[in-house]
Design a protein around this nucleic acid. Structure first.
Lengths: 203, 203
DNA sequence: GTCTATAAACAGATAGAC
DNA sequence: GTCTATCTGTTTATAGAC
Protein backbone atom coordinates (compact mmCIF):
# COMPACT_ATOMS: atom_id res chain seq x y z
CA UNK A 1 0.00 0.00 0.00
CA UNK A 2 2.17 2.87 -1.26
CA UNK A 3 1.33 6.52 -1.05
CA UNK A 4 0.54 6.80 -4.73
CA UNK A 5 -1.64 3.71 -4.86
CA UNK A 6 -4.31 5.19 -2.64
CA UNK A 7 -3.98 8.87 -3.12
CA UNK A 8 -7.72 9.53 -3.07
CA UNK A 9 -8.25 7.31 -0.06
CA UNK A 10 -5.61 9.25 1.85
CA UNK A 11 -7.08 12.57 0.79
CA UNK A 12 -10.47 11.46 2.08
CA UNK A 13 -8.98 10.20 5.30
CA UNK A 14 -7.14 13.41 5.97
CA UNK A 15 -10.29 15.42 5.30
CA UNK A 16 -12.31 13.13 7.55
CA UNK A 17 -9.80 13.48 10.36
CA UNK A 18 -9.97 17.23 10.09
CA UNK A 19 -13.75 17.48 10.04
CA UNK A 20 -14.39 14.80 12.67
CA UNK A 21 -11.88 16.21 15.16
CA UNK A 22 -13.24 19.70 14.60
CA UNK A 23 -16.96 18.95 14.79
CA UNK A 24 -17.25 15.55 16.45
CA UNK A 25 -19.07 12.52 15.09
CA UNK A 26 -22.54 14.01 15.46
CA UNK A 27 -21.58 17.42 14.11
CA UNK A 28 -19.65 16.16 11.08
CA UNK A 29 -21.38 15.88 7.69
CA UNK A 30 -20.33 13.47 4.97
CA UNK A 31 -20.89 16.28 2.48
CA UNK A 32 -18.46 18.54 4.30
CA UNK A 33 -15.82 15.82 4.36
CA UNK A 34 -16.28 15.28 0.64
CA UNK A 35 -15.93 19.01 -0.01
CA UNK A 36 -12.82 19.20 2.14
CA UNK A 37 -11.32 16.26 0.24
CA UNK A 38 -12.31 17.84 -3.09
CA UNK A 39 -14.22 14.79 -4.26
CA UNK A 40 -17.78 13.55 -4.47
CA UNK A 41 -19.81 12.28 -1.57
CA UNK A 42 -20.37 8.91 -3.22
CA UNK A 43 -16.64 8.24 -3.14
CA UNK A 44 -16.64 8.35 0.64
CA UNK A 45 -18.93 5.36 0.63
CA UNK A 46 -16.95 3.66 -2.09
CA UNK A 47 -13.78 3.78 0.03
CA UNK A 48 -15.13 3.54 3.58
CA UNK A 49 -18.61 1.97 3.28
CA UNK A 50 -20.32 4.30 5.82
CA UNK A 51 -19.85 7.13 8.28
CA UNK A 52 -19.27 4.81 11.22
CA UNK A 53 -16.41 2.94 9.59
CA UNK A 54 -14.80 6.18 8.44
CA UNK A 55 -15.04 7.57 11.94
CA UNK A 56 -13.67 4.39 13.46
CA UNK A 57 -10.56 4.69 11.31
CA UNK A 58 -10.06 8.33 12.19
CA UNK A 59 -10.54 7.65 15.89
CA UNK A 60 -7.88 4.93 15.91
CA UNK A 61 -5.55 7.22 14.01
CA UNK A 62 -6.04 10.02 16.52
CA UNK A 63 -5.43 7.64 19.43
CA UNK A 64 -2.13 6.72 17.82
CA UNK A 65 -1.16 10.40 17.69
CA UNK A 66 -2.11 10.91 21.28
CA UNK A 67 -0.84 7.98 23.24
CA UNK A 68 1.87 5.48 22.34
CA UNK A 69 5.03 7.58 22.31
CA UNK A 70 3.97 9.24 25.50
CA UNK A 71 3.16 6.23 27.58
CA UNK A 72 6.62 5.09 26.51
CA UNK A 73 8.19 8.12 28.14
CA UNK A 74 6.30 7.42 31.35
CA UNK A 75 7.64 3.90 31.55
CA UNK A 76 11.15 4.71 30.28
CA UNK A 77 14.20 3.99 32.42
CA UNK A 78 14.78 7.54 33.69
CA UNK A 79 14.52 9.25 37.07
CA UNK A 80 11.07 10.75 37.67
CA UNK A 81 12.51 14.26 37.74
CA UNK A 82 13.79 13.78 34.18
CA UNK A 83 10.78 11.88 32.88
CA UNK A 84 8.28 14.51 33.93
CA UNK A 85 9.66 17.50 31.99
CA UNK A 86 10.20 15.27 28.96
CA UNK A 87 6.60 14.09 29.06
CA UNK A 88 5.15 17.56 29.46
CA UNK A 89 7.28 19.07 26.74
CA UNK A 90 6.50 16.38 24.18
CA UNK A 91 2.80 16.32 24.99
CA UNK A 92 2.52 20.07 24.65
CA UNK A 93 4.25 19.91 21.28
CA UNK A 94 1.86 17.26 20.03
CA UNK A 95 -1.18 19.18 21.25
CA UNK A 96 0.11 22.43 19.83
CA UNK A 97 0.21 20.73 16.44
CA UNK A 98 -3.18 19.04 17.00
CA UNK A 99 -5.09 21.41 19.24
CA UNK A 100 -8.47 19.70 18.91
CA UNK A 101 -7.65 16.05 19.43
CA UNK A 102 -7.60 15.94 23.23
CA UNK A 103 -11.09 17.41 23.56
CA UNK A 104 -12.26 15.30 20.65
CA UNK A 105 -11.08 11.98 22.07
CA UNK A 106 -12.28 12.60 25.61
CA UNK A 107 -15.69 13.80 24.45
CA UNK A 108 -16.27 10.92 22.05
CA UNK A 109 -15.17 8.49 24.75
CA UNK A 110 -17.68 9.94 27.17
CA UNK A 111 -20.45 9.63 24.56
CA UNK A 112 -19.32 6.11 23.80
CA UNK A 113 -16.96 4.59 26.38
CA UNK A 114 -17.00 1.20 24.68
CA UNK A 115 -14.75 2.71 22.03
CA UNK A 116 -11.97 2.11 24.55
CA UNK A 117 -12.41 -1.62 24.25
CA UNK A 118 -10.18 -2.83 21.45
CA UNK A 119 -8.05 0.31 21.70
CA UNK A 120 -6.81 -0.34 25.20
CA UNK A 121 -3.43 -1.47 23.93
CA UNK A 122 -2.73 2.04 22.62
CA UNK A 123 -3.60 3.70 25.90
CA UNK A 124 -2.42 1.39 28.65
CA UNK A 125 0.28 2.56 31.05
CA UNK A 126 2.13 0.04 33.15
CA UNK A 127 1.11 1.41 36.53
CA UNK A 128 3.00 -1.25 38.45
CA UNK A 129 6.21 -0.08 36.86
CA UNK A 130 5.53 3.52 37.90
CA UNK A 131 4.51 2.35 41.36
CA UNK A 132 7.77 0.53 41.88
CA UNK A 133 9.79 3.45 40.56
CA UNK A 134 8.05 5.70 43.08
CA UNK A 135 8.77 3.21 45.85
CA UNK A 136 12.46 3.02 45.04
CA UNK A 137 12.85 6.80 44.76
CA UNK A 138 11.02 7.21 48.05
CA UNK A 139 13.37 4.68 49.62
CA UNK A 140 16.32 6.60 48.24
CA UNK A 141 14.98 9.79 49.82
CA UNK A 142 14.59 11.53 46.46
CA UNK A 143 10.82 12.05 46.65
CA UNK A 144 7.98 11.89 49.13
CA UNK A 145 5.42 9.08 48.92
CA UNK A 146 2.64 9.59 46.39
CA UNK A 147 0.00 7.35 44.85
CA UNK A 148 0.79 6.72 41.19
CA UNK A 149 -2.83 7.42 40.12
CA UNK A 150 -2.62 10.90 41.57
CA UNK A 151 0.81 11.65 40.18
CA UNK A 152 -0.31 10.61 36.70
CA UNK A 153 -3.61 12.45 37.08
CA UNK A 154 -1.85 15.63 38.15
CA UNK A 155 0.63 15.37 35.33
CA UNK A 156 -1.80 14.84 32.48
CA UNK A 157 -4.41 17.17 33.94
CA UNK A 158 -2.09 20.16 34.03
CA UNK A 159 -0.62 19.31 30.65
CA UNK A 160 -3.79 18.63 28.67
CA UNK A 161 -6.50 20.70 30.32
CA UNK A 162 -5.39 24.12 29.01
CA UNK A 163 -5.96 22.83 25.48
CA UNK A 164 -9.47 21.65 26.25
CA UNK A 165 -10.43 24.76 28.20
CA UNK A 166 -8.74 27.19 25.84
CA UNK A 167 -11.68 29.55 25.28
CA UNK A 168 -12.55 29.67 28.97
CA UNK A 169 -8.96 30.23 30.08
CA UNK A 170 -8.45 32.94 27.50
CA UNK A 171 -11.62 34.60 28.64
CA UNK A 172 -11.06 34.53 32.40
CA UNK A 173 -7.44 35.59 32.09
CA UNK A 174 -8.15 38.14 29.35
CA UNK A 175 -5.65 36.57 26.95
CA UNK A 176 -5.45 37.07 23.19
CA UNK A 177 -3.97 34.55 20.72
CA UNK A 178 -0.40 35.68 21.33
CA UNK A 179 -0.76 35.58 25.10
CA UNK A 180 -2.24 32.12 24.94
CA UNK A 181 0.62 30.82 22.79
CA UNK A 182 3.13 32.25 25.24
CA UNK A 183 1.14 30.86 28.16
CA UNK A 184 1.22 27.36 26.67
CA UNK A 185 4.94 27.58 26.03
CA UNK A 186 5.50 28.65 29.64
CA UNK A 187 3.69 25.57 30.86
CA UNK A 188 6.55 23.39 29.64
CA UNK A 189 8.46 24.87 32.58
CA UNK A 190 5.63 25.52 35.04
CA UNK A 191 3.99 22.09 35.06
CA UNK A 192 7.14 20.05 35.78
CA UNK A 193 8.22 22.64 38.32
CA UNK A 194 4.88 22.43 40.13
CA UNK A 195 4.94 18.66 40.30
CA UNK A 196 8.59 18.37 41.21
CA UNK A 197 8.28 20.93 44.00
CA UNK A 198 5.33 19.04 45.39
CA UNK A 199 7.31 15.80 45.31
CA UNK A 200 10.45 17.02 47.04
CA UNK A 201 10.86 15.66 50.56
CA UNK A 202 10.35 18.15 53.39
CA UNK A 203 13.78 19.14 54.60
CA UNK B 1 -43.68 32.23 38.20
CA UNK B 2 -44.30 29.63 40.92
CA UNK B 3 -43.33 26.00 40.73
CA UNK B 4 -46.87 24.84 40.16
CA UNK B 5 -47.68 27.36 37.47
CA UNK B 6 -45.22 25.89 34.99
CA UNK B 7 -44.97 22.30 35.96
CA UNK B 8 -44.77 21.00 32.39
CA UNK B 9 -42.28 23.65 31.38
CA UNK B 10 -40.02 22.63 34.23
CA UNK B 11 -40.39 18.97 33.40
CA UNK B 12 -39.34 19.70 29.83
CA UNK B 13 -36.43 21.83 30.96
CA UNK B 14 -35.14 19.19 33.32
CA UNK B 15 -35.39 16.55 30.61
CA UNK B 16 -33.65 18.84 28.13
CA UNK B 17 -30.83 19.51 30.56
CA UNK B 18 -30.34 15.81 31.08
CA UNK B 19 -30.33 14.88 27.40
CA UNK B 20 -28.28 17.87 26.22
CA UNK B 21 -25.57 17.45 28.85
CA UNK B 22 -25.43 13.74 28.16
CA UNK B 23 -25.40 13.82 24.36
CA UNK B 24 -24.44 17.36 23.40
CA UNK B 25 -26.38 19.68 21.13
CA UNK B 26 -25.70 17.70 17.97
CA UNK B 27 -26.35 14.33 19.57
CA UNK B 28 -29.57 15.29 21.34
CA UNK B 29 -32.95 14.58 19.70
CA UNK B 30 -36.09 16.57 20.39
CA UNK B 31 -37.98 13.29 20.40
CA UNK B 32 -35.73 11.90 23.12
CA UNK B 33 -36.21 15.00 25.25
CA UNK B 34 -39.98 14.70 24.82
CA UNK B 35 -39.85 11.03 25.83
CA UNK B 36 -37.71 11.84 28.87
CA UNK B 37 -40.18 14.55 29.88
CA UNK B 38 -43.10 12.19 29.30
CA UNK B 39 -44.85 14.55 26.91
CA UNK B 40 -45.26 15.07 23.19
CA UNK B 41 -42.70 16.54 20.82
CA UNK B 42 -45.02 19.38 19.81
CA UNK B 43 -45.09 20.65 23.36
CA UNK B 44 -41.38 21.32 23.26
CA UNK B 45 -41.98 23.80 20.49
CA UNK B 46 -45.00 25.23 22.25
CA UNK B 47 -42.90 26.10 25.31
CA UNK B 48 -39.48 26.80 23.81
CA UNK B 49 -40.09 27.62 20.13
CA UNK B 50 -37.14 25.60 18.77
CA UNK B 51 -34.13 23.42 19.62
CA UNK B 52 -31.72 26.35 19.69
CA UNK B 53 -33.68 28.33 22.24
CA UNK B 54 -34.17 25.27 24.42
CA UNK B 55 -30.46 24.58 24.32
CA UNK B 56 -29.59 28.18 25.05
CA UNK B 57 -31.64 28.03 28.23
CA UNK B 58 -30.05 24.79 29.33
CA UNK B 59 -26.56 26.08 28.61
CA UNK B 60 -27.07 29.20 30.73
CA UNK B 61 -28.48 27.05 33.51
CA UNK B 62 -25.46 24.76 33.43
CA UNK B 63 -23.09 27.74 33.49
CA UNK B 64 -24.84 28.93 36.61
CA UNK B 65 -24.24 25.55 38.24
CA UNK B 66 -20.60 25.59 37.26
CA UNK B 67 -19.27 29.06 37.86
CA UNK B 68 -20.63 31.79 40.08
CA UNK B 69 -20.22 30.40 43.58
CA UNK B 70 -16.75 29.21 42.72
CA UNK B 71 -15.32 32.35 41.27
CA UNK B 72 -16.57 33.92 44.48
CA UNK B 73 -14.37 31.63 46.53
CA UNK B 74 -11.36 32.55 44.41
CA UNK B 75 -11.86 36.24 45.04
CA UNK B 76 -12.91 35.90 48.69
CA UNK B 77 -10.96 37.59 51.45
CA UNK B 78 -9.01 34.56 52.64
CA UNK B 79 -5.36 33.51 52.56
CA UNK B 80 -4.49 31.49 49.44
CA UNK B 81 -3.74 28.42 51.52
CA UNK B 82 -7.30 28.46 52.83
CA UNK B 83 -8.98 29.44 49.57
CA UNK B 84 -7.44 26.62 47.58
CA UNK B 85 -8.74 23.65 49.59
CA UNK B 86 -12.15 25.32 49.81
CA UNK B 87 -12.30 25.76 46.06
CA UNK B 88 -11.22 22.21 45.28
CA UNK B 89 -13.59 20.66 47.77
CA UNK B 90 -16.64 22.60 46.59
CA UNK B 91 -15.89 22.08 42.92
CA UNK B 92 -15.46 18.36 43.39
CA UNK B 93 -18.79 18.19 45.19
CA UNK B 94 -20.55 20.03 42.38
CA UNK B 95 -18.98 17.83 39.72
CA UNK B 96 -19.72 14.68 41.65
CA UNK B 97 -23.39 15.68 41.57
CA UNK B 98 -23.20 16.75 37.90
CA UNK B 99 -20.52 14.54 36.38
CA UNK B 100 -21.19 15.48 32.74
CA UNK B 101 -21.41 19.23 32.85
CA UNK B 102 -17.70 20.09 32.73
CA UNK B 103 -17.09 18.09 29.56
CA UNK B 104 -20.36 19.32 28.13
CA UNK B 105 -19.62 23.02 28.62
CA UNK B 106 -16.03 22.88 27.43
CA UNK B 107 -16.93 20.87 24.34
CA UNK B 108 -19.86 23.06 23.34
CA UNK B 109 -17.69 26.12 23.87
CA UNK B 110 -15.03 24.72 21.58
CA UNK B 111 -17.64 24.00 18.90
CA UNK B 112 -19.09 27.43 19.39
CA UNK B 113 -16.84 29.84 21.32
CA UNK B 114 -19.19 32.79 20.73
CA UNK B 115 -21.50 31.24 23.33
CA UNK B 116 -19.13 32.82 25.83
CA UNK B 117 -20.15 36.31 24.73
CA UNK B 118 -23.11 37.35 26.82
CA UNK B 119 -22.29 34.74 29.45
CA UNK B 120 -18.97 36.28 30.39
CA UNK B 121 -20.43 37.76 33.52
CA UNK B 122 -21.01 34.28 34.92
CA UNK B 123 -17.48 33.14 34.23
CA UNK B 124 -15.23 36.13 34.86
CA UNK B 125 -12.64 35.99 37.60
CA UNK B 126 -11.05 39.18 38.84
CA UNK B 127 -7.48 38.31 37.94
CA UNK B 128 -6.11 41.62 39.20
CA UNK B 129 -7.42 40.81 42.64
CA UNK B 130 -5.70 37.43 42.62
CA UNK B 131 -2.57 39.01 41.23
CA UNK B 132 -2.39 41.51 44.07
CA UNK B 133 -3.10 38.84 46.66
CA UNK B 134 -0.19 36.83 45.28
CA UNK B 135 2.04 39.88 45.39
CA UNK B 136 1.22 40.64 48.99
CA UNK B 137 1.69 37.03 50.13
CA UNK B 138 5.00 36.91 48.27
CA UNK B 139 6.04 40.12 50.01
CA UNK B 140 5.08 38.57 53.34
CA UNK B 141 7.24 35.54 52.59
CA UNK B 142 4.28 33.16 52.67
CA UNK B 143 4.56 31.95 49.08
CA UNK B 144 6.95 32.02 46.15
CA UNK B 145 6.20 34.18 43.09
CA UNK B 146 3.79 32.64 40.57
CA UNK B 147 1.85 34.00 37.63
CA UNK B 148 -1.87 34.05 38.44
CA UNK B 149 -2.79 32.47 35.07
CA UNK B 150 -0.68 29.44 35.88
CA UNK B 151 -1.89 29.12 39.44
CA UNK B 152 -5.51 29.23 38.29
CA UNK B 153 -4.79 26.88 35.38
CA UNK B 154 -3.11 24.36 37.69
CA UNK B 155 -5.93 24.56 40.19
CA UNK B 156 -8.83 24.06 37.83
CA UNK B 157 -6.94 21.56 35.65
CA UNK B 158 -6.25 19.18 38.51
CA UNK B 159 -9.75 19.63 39.91
CA UNK B 160 -11.82 19.28 36.76
CA UNK B 161 -9.81 17.09 34.42
CA UNK B 162 -10.41 13.77 36.21
CA UNK B 163 -14.14 14.21 35.57
CA UNK B 164 -13.63 14.81 31.87
CA UNK B 165 -11.12 12.01 31.43
CA UNK B 166 -12.95 9.56 33.64
CA UNK B 167 -13.05 6.60 31.24
CA UNK B 168 -9.40 7.03 30.25
CA UNK B 169 -8.19 7.40 33.84
CA UNK B 170 -10.19 4.39 34.98
CA UNK B 171 -8.75 2.40 32.13
CA UNK B 172 -5.08 3.29 32.51
CA UNK B 173 -5.18 2.92 36.27
CA UNK B 174 -7.36 -0.20 36.18
CA UNK B 175 -10.01 1.34 38.43
CA UNK B 176 -13.59 0.19 38.87
CA UNK B 177 -16.50 2.43 39.96
CA UNK B 178 -15.68 2.15 43.64
CA UNK B 179 -11.99 2.89 43.11
CA UNK B 180 -12.83 5.91 41.00
CA UNK B 181 -15.18 7.30 43.66
CA UNK B 182 -12.49 6.89 46.28
CA UNK B 183 -9.90 8.38 43.95
CA UNK B 184 -12.04 11.50 43.43
CA UNK B 185 -12.62 11.88 47.14
CA UNK B 186 -8.87 11.65 47.75
CA UNK B 187 -8.28 14.49 45.34
CA UNK B 188 -9.90 16.92 47.77
CA UNK B 189 -6.74 16.43 49.79
CA UNK B 190 -4.18 15.73 47.05
CA UNK B 191 -4.86 18.71 44.79
CA UNK B 192 -4.53 21.45 47.44
CA UNK B 193 -1.53 19.64 48.90
CA UNK B 194 0.19 19.54 45.51
CA UNK B 195 -0.39 23.21 44.83
CA UNK B 196 0.47 24.38 48.32
CA UNK B 197 3.71 22.39 48.39
CA UNK B 198 4.70 23.91 45.07
CA UNK B 199 3.99 27.40 46.41
CA UNK B 200 5.93 27.17 49.65
CA UNK B 201 9.11 29.24 49.65
CA UNK B 202 12.37 27.29 49.51
CA UNK B 203 13.79 27.28 53.00
C1' DG C 1 -12.63 5.05 -9.81
C1' DT C 2 -15.50 8.85 -10.19
C1' DC C 3 -19.54 11.06 -11.17
C1' DT C 4 -24.95 12.49 -11.15
C1' DA C 5 -29.25 11.45 -9.64
C1' DT C 6 -32.14 9.66 -6.36
C1' DA C 7 -33.86 6.69 -2.77
C1' DA C 8 -34.76 6.07 2.15
C1' DA C 9 -34.69 7.45 6.67
C1' DC C 10 -34.63 10.92 9.95
C1' DA C 11 -35.32 15.20 12.57
C1' DG C 12 -37.06 19.73 13.36
C1' DA C 13 -41.00 22.28 13.02
C1' DT C 14 -46.05 23.42 12.20
C1' DA C 15 -51.28 22.84 11.43
C1' DG C 16 -55.19 21.95 13.37
C1' DA C 17 -58.41 19.03 16.30
C1' DC C 18 -59.73 18.59 21.00
C1' DG D 1 -52.29 23.11 27.03
C1' DT D 2 -51.86 18.89 24.85
C1' DC D 3 -52.37 15.81 21.31
C1' DT D 4 -52.06 13.45 16.27
C1' DA D 5 -50.86 14.00 11.78
C1' DT D 6 -48.04 15.94 8.50
C1' DC D 7 -44.82 19.02 6.06
C1' DT D 8 -40.19 20.40 4.93
C1' DG D 9 -35.55 20.17 4.85
C1' DT D 10 -31.52 17.52 5.79
C1' DT D 11 -28.41 13.58 5.72
C1' DT D 12 -26.83 9.05 4.92
C1' DA D 13 -26.55 5.80 1.57
C1' DT D 14 -27.20 3.47 -3.01
C1' DA D 15 -28.08 2.81 -8.19
C1' DG D 16 -26.34 3.21 -12.29
C1' DA D 17 -24.01 5.88 -16.19
C1' DC D 18 -19.41 6.88 -17.76
Amino acid sequence: MTDLDHNTEQQIFRAARKIFTLKGYNGARMQEIADEAGINKALLHYYFRNKDKLFEGVFRDVLKTLFPGLTNILTADLPLFEKIPLFVSQYIDILTNNPEIAGFVLYELRLNPQRLVGNLRDIGIDMDLIRSQIESEVAAGIIRPVKPEHLIANLISMTIFPFIARPVLMSIAGMDEAHYTKFIEERKRIVPETIIQSLKPIQ
